[in-house]
């Protein structure tokens, strides 16, 4: 069933059951995202895709909110962009994101967003947590210092590869991505070594061994097709 609505004052139409993000994308309207990846279950957790919907009090995440007839959506505003900037700053200050020595320098979604939203300094003090690096796997490395807890790795491994090697331990700011029963990655009994988690990671938290600074290049278009093709999401 076809529905009509407006996004940024533009009349658009979509199918019932589609999300605001999908319909916006179909019409060339870009909404920033970080935890979202086509083909994986939607979480609405990074809060970057929050949009204003007329008549409602709360901001809604475009990636998981279904469209409604006559919805009036605003994707950019001073208020929304201010929130996005601050969320990016919070993420950058949460762990140790030092681009200059990172594999993903130049190919990092967090970096791209920071640039897009004009983040040139941090309004919040960096927290400098002491976090480990797991280099036990033969081909890959997990560096918690670069992790933003988007859980794309968790979802792709559970939903697409079916191994469910990754999950999250603890809670709140103590949350950490974990392998099996907190095993070193190299000793995992479930990991298939497929590398999908490395491919979906938006930052330099997961990377291939043998890469140097700025050498991590994600094959994102190929990845999206792979993930979307294999999943049953939205089928």
């Amino acid at each position: 069933m076809s529905l009509t609505l407006t996004i940024d004052n533009r009349p658009v139409s979509g199918r019932a059951g589609e999300t605001i993000l999908q319909v916006a994308a179909d019409h060339g309207i870009r909404i920033p995202t970080l935890c979202h990846l086509e083909g994986l279950s939607g979480l609405g957790s990074c809060r970057l895709c929050l949009v204003e919907v007329a008549g409602g009090g709360k901001l809604l995440p475009a990636c998981v909110t279904p469209i409604r007839e006559d919805m009036e959506v605003l994707t950019r505003s001073e208020r929304l962009d201010r929130h996005r900037r601050r969320i990016i700053e919070l993420l950058l200050a949460e762990r140790n994101h030092v681009c200059a020595v990172c594999m993903a320098n130049g190919s990092c979604e967090l970096q791209d967003l920071a640039r897009e939203f004009g983040v040139d300094h941090l309004a919040f003090p960096p927290l400098y947590p002491l976090l480990p690096v797991d280099g036990s796997h033969a081909r890959f490395v997990l560096d918690h210092n670069r992790c933003i807890l988007c859980t794309r790795c968790v979802r792709v491994c559970a939903e697409i590869e079916g191994a469910h090697t990754w999950d999250v331990r603890n809670r709140g700011s103590r949350s950490l991505i974990v392998v099996d029963l907190d095993t070193p990655w190299g000793e995992s009994t479930t990991c298939t070594g497929c590398g999908k988690c490395v491919a979906v990671c938006p930052t330099g938290a997961l990377f291939e061994k043998g890469r140097s600074v700025g050498e991590l290049r994600q094959h994102r278009p190929a990845l999206v097709a792979l993930v979307a093709g294999r999943s049953t999401e939205g089928a």
Binding site: A93, E94, L149, N170, R171
Partner: peptide, 8 residues
């Protein structure tokens, strides 16, 4: 810990 605004 799911969303950044609350967590951080």
């Amino acid at each position: 810990g799911k969303c950044a605004p609350c967590r951080v």
